[in-house]
Simulated scan of single mutants.
Amino acid sequence: MSDVLTTEFLDSAIRARLDAVHAEVVDMSGGCGQAFEVIIVSPKFTGKNVLMRHRLVNAALKSEIAAIHAFTQKDYTPEEWAKKSGQ
């Protein structure tokens, strides 16, 4: 991992480590890689409440989250995402 996280690296890590079927990563820091807002859609979230989902993501991205200032996540199952996005 480089000193500055990129949206592409974080997107790839999320998809690989959490089996995400959809991920949206936005660098809220203006490109310096210190604040990210993410949406993660994964079947791994099925049957888990919000706290359990956040813990799962935090464990999967532990080293990346430790290297940045702010990390905001919204986690959905594929079914929840389909309803939310109107599919």
Rank of each mutant, 00 (worst) to 15 (best):
M1T: 02
S2V: 11
S2M: 12
S2A: 15
S2C: 08
S2E: 12
L5C: 01
T6Y: 11
T6A: 07
T7Y: 04
T7S: 13
E8H: 12
E8N: 09
E8T: 12
F9C: 14
F9V: 13
F9M: 14
F9I: 13
L10I: 07
L10Q: 10
S12F: 13
S12P: 06
A13G: 05
A13R: 10
R15S: 07
A16N: 07
A16F: 00
L18E: 11
L18S: 07
D19I: 00
D19N: 13
V21K: 05
V21Y: 01
H22C: 09
H22Y: 08
H22T: 07
A23T: 15
E24M: 11
V26N: 02
M28V: 09
M28W: 05
M28G: 03
G33K: 03
F36N: 00
F36Y: 02
I39Y: 07
I39Q: 11
I40S: 10
S42A: 10
K44F: 10
K44E: 15
T46D: 06
G47M: 07
G47I: 08
K48Y: 08
N49Y: 03
H54P: 10
R55G: 14
R55N: 06
V57W: 06
N58E: 15
A59Y: 10
A60M: 01
L61C: 11
S63Q: 15
A67N: 03
A67R: 12
A67V: 00
I68C: 12
I68F: 08
H69M: 06
A70D: 08
A70W: 08
T72P: 04
K74S: 09
K74E: 07
D75Q: 10
D75W: 06
T77C: 04
T77E: 04
E79I: 04
E79K: 11
E79V: 10
E80I: 13
A82E: 14
K83N: 14
K83S: 13
G86S: 03
G86D: 04
Q87Y: 14
